[in-house]
Structures are given as structure tokens and as C-alpha cells.
């Protein structure tokens, strides 16, 4: 048995040897001189070649590579080019009324705007200080549609004149890439030697710089740990904040999804959305996910998903 195995191996080796022998028989000695002169000519040309020719050759042989490098360089430069973006901070409703109506109008406005996200200032009119008052109603955390509804309702109050609505905007300059990344901000904050107040200020400043002016976060102490609490959330603001080191880290991840995101066309309920989010992020538990179903401006269902994960 052993002998037959040995015999087979010997035969196999011979068989393979035949193939390599065929190759070993290829003799190229006749081409030696041709190669020799070709190489000598090429190397002499290469030595004599002027620097400009070398550069020309480099461009000719690498023109696609160079084109790609130039395109990437242009893209990076374009991304760093500053662009102006305008953020709406709120809406200002101004109107006039007779002095006798000031108290009544103030009360009506109080009834009209229930969530206290406004400030009202009443001045004497410059043109007719004896009889007319000027109202300045500042609406915060509201969109244009809601502001117009409030404007229309104020217009129905008797005695209101010269009613106007103005958007309060802030214009600032930032690189294109920062503008493009505005929809998702990543913040890593080191809390060592900092008070809760200064951390809160630092985080909110970062959010503001990223264009998330309507979002605010607060840092509080909870059982000896620093925790992040979401105070206000601006529409379409998405971010992740990591506070602390690996052991004591508190993470707040906010990603607001519309029905079109994550292929949610078939999702109708909050529970279905929760399952979908868990599918996409298997490391999340039920407690980490908060889902709010709302209607957007067009009457479509919008799911707000808040993920708060503690590592």
C-alpha cells in the first residue's frame, strides 16, 4: 500500500516535471543582444532627458491620477469655502391700539399663547403718546405657520391696528462642510474640573455654533453622576453628545426621523417604529428609545426618535 502511494507520488512528480521541462526549454539567448542595446539606449535616453521632458512624461503617464488629485483638492477647497446661512430665531408681531385697550389686549394674548414662549413689550407711541400704545410680541420656538395663525387671531381682537409680522433672523458664515454636517453634530465633552453651569454653557454654545439655535441641553448631578437633560429641541436638529470618560459616560443621541427615513413607509405606529429603530441599532434597549408621533407641515406623520443611551 505504502509502495503504491510512493509510486503514485513519483509519477505525479514526473508528470509535473514534464510541464516545467517544456518551459525550461525556452531559450531566449538569441534575443540577448537586442535586449542589451534596447536597455542601453533607454537608460542613456533617460539620463539625457531634460527635466522638462521628464515632467512632461510624468504628466502624460499619470494624467488621470493627476486629474483625480486636482478634483479632490478642488473639492476640499470648496468644502472649506465659507458660505452664509440664515437662521430664524423667532417672529415679531407688532401692532398699535388705543391706550384704553392695553389691559384687555394683554389678557387676550395671554389666553391666545398658552405655552409661554413669548415676551410682550408695550411702549407709548412716538407719534401719539397720549392715546396710542405700541405692542411688540416676540414669539420664540415657533414656525412661520404658527406665527401667522397667532397674527390672524390677534387681528380679530377689537382695537388692534397696523398689525405686522416680521421674522427675526441671524446670519452667520461657516464652511460648506460644516453646513452640510449641520444635520448631525457629534460632541465629546470632558467634564473634569468644570461646573454643571459651565458644561451647560459649553454644550449650548457648541449647539448654537452648529446652527441648532432652538435646541438646549442642561447638565445636572444625579446620584454622583453627571447627566444630560434635553430642555428644548429644534425641528430637524440631530446630534450626539458624549459627556465624561468611558466609566461615567452619559450619551445623548437625538436623531429625528421623518416617515421617509429608514424606509418607514409601512410604519404606522410608535411600536412599529421602535422595533425598526431596534433593528437598526441592536445594542439599544426599550428604555433608551423615546418615540413621539407628530404631524408635519404637510399633514404627514413624523416620528421623533430620541435615543438616550448610557454606557
Amino acid at each position: 500500500m505504502k509502495q503504491s502511494k510512493y509510486y503514485k507520488e513519483q509519477m505525479d512528480d514526473k508528470n509535473l516535471k514534464k510541464y516545467f521541462d517544456e518551459v525550461r526549454n525556452e531559450n531566449y539567448d538569441k534575443t540577448f543582444n537586442k535586449t542589451k542595446y534596447f536597455i542601453l539606449e533607454k537608460s542613456q535616453n533617460s539620463e539625457q532627458m531634460k527635466l522638462t521632458d521628464k515632467i512632461k512624461n510624468l504628466f502624460l503617464l499619470n494624467k488621470l491620477k493627476l486629474a483625480i488629485v486636482v478634483m479632490i483638492a478642488l473639492f476640499v477647497a470648496a468644502c472649506n469655502y465659507p458660505v452664509n446661512s440664515v437662521n430664524t430665531l423667532g417672529y415679531l408681531v407688532t401692532f398699535n391700539s388705543g391706550k384704553e385697550n392695553v389691559q384687555m389686549i394683554s389678557k387676550e394674548i395671554e389666553k391666545l399663547i398658552l405655552n409661554n414662549t413669548y415676551s410682550l413689550k408695550i411702549n407709548k407711541s412716538k407719534e401719539n403718546p397720549e392715546h396710542t400704545a405700541e405692542f411688540y410680541l416676540m414669539l420664540q420656538n415657533t414656525n412661520e405657520q404658527d406665527a401667522r395663525i397667532i397674527q390672524n387671531k390677534i387681528g380679530l381682537i377689537s382695537g388692534v391696528e397696523n398689525l405686522n409680522l416680521t421674522a427675526l433672523t441671524e446670519s452667520h458664515s461657516q464652511p460648506v462642510y460644516a453646513y452640510a454636517l449641520k444635520n448631525f453634530l457629534n460632541l465629546n465633552i470632558d467634564p473634569s474640573n468644570k461646573s454643571n453651569e459651565s458644561l451647560t454653557q459649553e454644550i449650548n454654545n457648541n449647539l448654537k455654533q452648529a446652527g441648532m439655535v432652538n435646541t438646549s441641553v442642561k447638565v445636572v448631578d444625579d446620584s454622583g453622576k453627571r447627566r444630560l437633560i434635553l430642555e428644548n429641541l429644534g425641528a430637524e436638529d440631530n446630534f450626539e453628545i458624549k459627556l465624561g470618560d468611558d466609566k461615567t459616560m452619559d450619551v445623548m443621541k437625538i436623531r429625528q426621523l421623518k416617515s421617509g427615513d429608514l424606509n418607514t413607509e409601512t410604519i404606522k405606529t410608535e411600536e412599529e417604529m421602535r422595533e425598526k429603530v431596534k433593528q437598526e441599532n441592536p445594542d439599544l434597549k426599550d428604555d433608551d428609545i423615546k418615540i413621539i408621533k407628530e404631524k408635519d407641515e404637510n399633514g404627514k406623520d413624523v416620528f421623533k426618535v430620541e435615543i438616550s443611551k448610557e454606557d
Partner: peptide, 17 residues
């Protein structure tokens, strides 16, 4: 280069194969 080609000649076919 002449020395190079002297060294190359005996192994030239091996190199090509």
C-alpha cells in the same frame, strides 16, 4: 553597464522565463 550585461548573460533566459 558592460559588467552588468556580463553578469546578466548566464541568467538571462532564466530571468525571462
Amino acid at each position: 553597464s558592460n559588467e552588468f550585461f556580463e553578469y546578466l548573460k548566464p541568467v538571462y533566459s532564466d530571468c525571462i522565463r
